[in-house]
């Protein structure tokens, strides 16, 4: 029983997860694409599915949508087992596939009508849901146009519109901004952010800022294994023993290097000066937690170099990927 004034997050967490994946494995011949991954997606959350190319993101998505069969493990969507009742599962999912495959010869209107009927909508419902999806994705301008004559941005919207027609509980977007120009990327993200207020969404991407901008939780895959799962802030801050820090001192660059060495910080890169002036040096260092930070301040003060900036930085997902790659090479 939930407390009377339970928040949205508490209500969502109390409901059964929309997606439940346990021990999921998939092999293509001798190649193991997924080596037993587990995760859950709660109602109303936006899950970012991340990983370098070949990590197994798309394979996992294709199994979730019923397009591929799993080699082992269990996948449930809205409490229904994908292997046992794939058709029922497909009715709950709206899917924008990677590269957004569409029938380019069909007109936008005809395609959306076909897609609506494919999801068991009939009669007046069809026009109603098509109108709603067209309005939601801003397709009015190209409604009567063959899809092949639409810009990439509009095609992406058509892909999204077909995924929304049947008002699915779960929206799966595989690389939704792939190939879009920067303006279209901004528009598409705004659209997804808007959808995220009403629906459960799984979004895959290797464009990291996209996940940072959209997802409230991340599952990080690497070589078919789940290597991290949790809120984005948590994943980025997992490695507290090694935090990045921006430093700017009124001194020469070589003097800043000396300060770094004395403070036991790792020199990562010299940075452009954040402030005007000839006698400034700036760099990004890696230090050991809060003690490392204070040590830099102390050493700089002892050496008599005024401290202009000492700012801990959030680790980017690029860093996590880089670490994964370095681990791979070792």
């Amino acid at each position: 029983m939930l407390p009377k004034h339970a928040g949205v997050a508490e209500v969502a967490a109390a409901q059964p997860p929309v997606v439940r994946v346990a021990g999921l494995k998939k092999s293509y011949g001798k190649v193991e694409a997924l080596r037993g991954i587990d995760f859950e997606v709660n109602q109303g959350s936006v899950l970012g599915f991340l990983g370098p190319n070949g990590a197994g993101k798309t394979t996992a998505i294709k199994i979730l949508t019923g397009y591929l069969a799993a080699s082992a493990g269990r996948v449930e969507v809205c409490g229904v087992d994908v292997a046992e009742e794939p058709l029922e599962v497909k009715r709950h999912i709206g899917y924008l596939a990677e590269n957004n495959p569409l029938y380019l010869d069909m007109r936008v209107a005809d395609f959306l009508h076909f897609a609506a009927r494919a999801f068991f909508l009939t009669g007046r419902q069809v026009q109603q849901v098509v109108d709603r999806a067209v309005c939601c994705t801003g397709l009015e301008e190209v409604y009567r146009r063959p899809i092949g004559h639409c810009s990439k941005g509009f095609r992406q919207r058509v892909g999204l519109a077909q995924a929304l027609l049947h008002d699915p509980q779960l929206l799966i977007l595989d690389e939704p901004t792939n190939g879009l120009d920067p303006l279209q990327v901004v528009e598409m993200r705004a659209l997804i952010r808007e959808l995220g207020r009403q629906k459960t969404i799984i979004i895959t991407s290797h464009v990291l800022p996209e996940i940072e901008a959209l997802a409230d939780r991340v599952v990080l895959l690497h070589e078919g294994r789940k290597v991290a799962d949790g809120p984005l802030g948590g994943i980025l801050g997992q490695d507290l023993a090694h935090c990045l820090v921006r430093v700017c001192l009124r001194c020469k660059p070589e003097q800043l290097r000396t300060v770094a060495e004395e403070a036991n910080a790792v020199w990562l890169e010299e940075r452009p000066q954040p402030f005007a002036g000839d006698d400034l040096a700036a760099a990004t260092l890696e230090v050991a937690g809060a003690d490392g930070l204070s040590r830099i301040a102390t050493v700089a003060a002892q050496a008599g170099y005024p401290l202009l900036e000492l700012a801990p930085q959030t680790r980017s997902l690029e860093y996590l990927f880089q670490n994964l790659k370095q681990g791979e090479e070792k």
Binding site: K62, T65, G66, Y67, L87, E88, K90, R91, I93, Y95, A97, N99, P101, L102, Y103, L104, A115, A118, F119, F120, Q162
Partner: peptide
């Protein structure tokens, strides 16, 4: 070739 097979096979058709 065009990838629309995935679209079709993820719609609820037998």
């Amino acid at each position: 070739r065009s990838g629309t097979e995935e679209l079709l096979l993820t719609y609820p058709f037998h």
